[in-house]
Amino acid sequence: MPSRRAILASLAAATVAPALAGPAAAFAPGAGGFPGLLPEIRPWGKFFIVNGWVLTANDLETLGLA
């Protein structure tokens, strides 16, 4: 039987607040980071500035903003 720690670890891996702790948490569905506000997306070279966050194209896909 998996240990409590292992279960919690797999739970953590499944969350949407992992490597992108800050921005992902802010924009994740249901997170309510900017309730009622559409994020402002500004291209910055190969990157994007989204409500002040400097994000990659992959980040935008992850966040459902692409």
Partner: peptide
Amino acid sequence: AELGAHYAEQGIGRVQI
């Protein structure tokens, strides 16, 4: 913003301005 781009490219983290 360019520091944020550098950190993202290097996999270090993300920057909020």
